[in-house]
Design a protein around this nucleic acid. Sequence first.
DNA 1: GGCAGTCAAGTACGC
DNA 2: GCGTACTTGACTGCC
Length: 300
Amino acid sequence: MRIGYPCLNRSIGCTPSKTFRLASYTEERLEQTIAANLACLQKILEYNVEHGLLFLRITSDLVPFASHEICTYSWQEQFADIFQGLGDYCKKHGFRISMHPDQFVLLNAPDAGVLERSIRELAYQSAVLDLMGLDRTAKIQIHVGGVYGDKAASMDRFVENYSQLDKTIRARLVIENDERLYAVADCRKIHDRTGIPVILDTFHHSLNNQGEPVQTALSILAETWTSQEGLPMVDYSSQQEGKRPGAHAEHIVSEDFSRFLGDSKPCDFDLMLEIKDKEKSANLALALAAEDFRLVTRSA
DNA sequence: GGCAGTCAAGTACGC
DNA sequence: GCGTACTTGACTGCC
């Protein structure tokens, strides 16, 4: 079990998600922004090595507008060496890497334009991981998508569109249960038809399930990952007190987290903490898991 | 320098 | 059919 946090680090004084408005797009600005974002990503990796946080989700904003039609800049060629350096650093230190496109990426969209833009975004994120030279354990996690008034047909559409994807993208994709539409059991059905691995979001699972305890959900999960693809990935969060159900917590709740560690044994997985204060909670989680036999904090 | 409104992209849902 | 919530960090214009 590696532990990590998504995208941003609030302690190191830089962001890998620097962007700008479409209206201010210029190639110079794009180039400067990518350079700054990649430099910050390197700083985050170094911070994480120092702290033993070996699971990292890379921000979708690393290369702003990468999948937008406005972008004709050859960022892949221009920054190839830097991406490779980042990837070498990750491999040297035993990092697990993921990416997570946001809500606009919908592989089961009935609208051809939405689908096309989604595929372009997946191609971009896939290219980032490829440029870093990362193996099949580096994943891109998406949700199944919308229901569009007919869930069965929408799942069929996911399967069909997935099968049409370039195989380099298919090798990266994993699906995650969501809090309203597609539960773990739905994701499992899609896995059975496609072989796509399933990510468990424990918080979403608590809000949308078919009665399976976490332990059962983790067992279902484990069956969907091959050894080639590494340990299953799990997203963990808890409810922010006083906010609507589904709102992510600002800080990790120690008792909840320790209970989760206990409940999830002996399943092993890499754990992403979707908590708003990022590395602060991740460091606390690491301390809480210090005695856990599954925990890995440095390269073997 | 600080603040409020806005930002590439979509879906679901209430009225 | 239309407007709004969802979610969220960073940008941008305005004071």
